[in-house]
Amino acid sequence: MTKPLLQVEGLKKYFPIRSGVLAKQSGYVKAVDNVSFHVNEGETLGIVGESGCGKSTTGRMLMRLLEPTEGKVTFDGKELTSISSTEMRKARREIQMVFQDPYASLNPRHTVEKILMEPLIVHNIGNAKSRKKKVHEFLEIVGLSSYHAKRYPHQFSGGQRQRIGIARALMTNPKLIIADEPVSALDVSIQAQVLNLMQDLQKELKLTYIFIAHDLGVVRHISDRVGVMYLGRMAELATSESLYEEPLHPYTKALLSAVPVPDPEHKREQIILEGDIPSPSNPPSGCTFHTRCPFKMEACTSIVPKLEEVKPGHFVACHLYNEQVQH
């Protein structure tokens, strides 16, 4: 059993809602509400969910780009949530991020060389000559050429830019890469290339990924374990096979039934969820999914289900699998 590289406990992010002339606080948006999980060294944890479910917020809190309201993040034995912002900045050498939009995440006024060199300068790694060599080396690693170094981001295609974004994340030899929807902005044909590149890099450089996405197919392809989020909470967390073969949470079932199957003979039993995602500023009591759940019970409206291990390695937060509540 590999040891967990990242341990997240009870992570919360409440955004205050201010209204009125005096900016009085009138409530919270519970973007992330009590999320716990761990990531083992060398694995890929996928996090899926609809837009607004808090998956990106979670990713940003892990790096403290957003300060968590509550909760503990432990990375490689170090508690990230309690260290100073200066120390956190240094810790970011070990955790890097790949962003969603390759058009927005590269400074348009910097050459590729400057973009890639910056992490090295910031963390004071090597000298001018070795940095340049490393930039060229990593450009080759992500499938570009060293002559691309002198170009500006606008001279590249979306896929190439995302490769630059990945190269930038790799410059400091991090252990963990948080990929926030890294392929959502790309064409499907390019998505596969970038995903394969990320998988190759993982093998080669022994990376650990947290892969945030809304595309279940993409997540299945790349993840060892998958967490499903709904309205700021983790609904289900299991290994890829277990989750895709046998989803337990009604929400996961509904999500998976919506994935198109490339087989014309296949008869779909699509579970259509009624209604919209409730507002996170006023989430339903008990299980946040009870307003749309086809298997709603009495307990669901009052008691918040805990994420519990119902099968080895398969966690689900649903009263259907909790015998105590059922009877």
Partner: peptide, 21 residues
């Protein structure tokens, strides 16, 4: 802009972000 977030994610100091980005 996302490239400012990415600069922070790299671990850059505020002053450098201000003057270089």
């Amino acid at each position: 802009e996302e490239y400012i977030t990415s600069a922070k994610a790299i671990g850059m100091k505020d002053l450098r972000i201000l003057f270089s980005h």
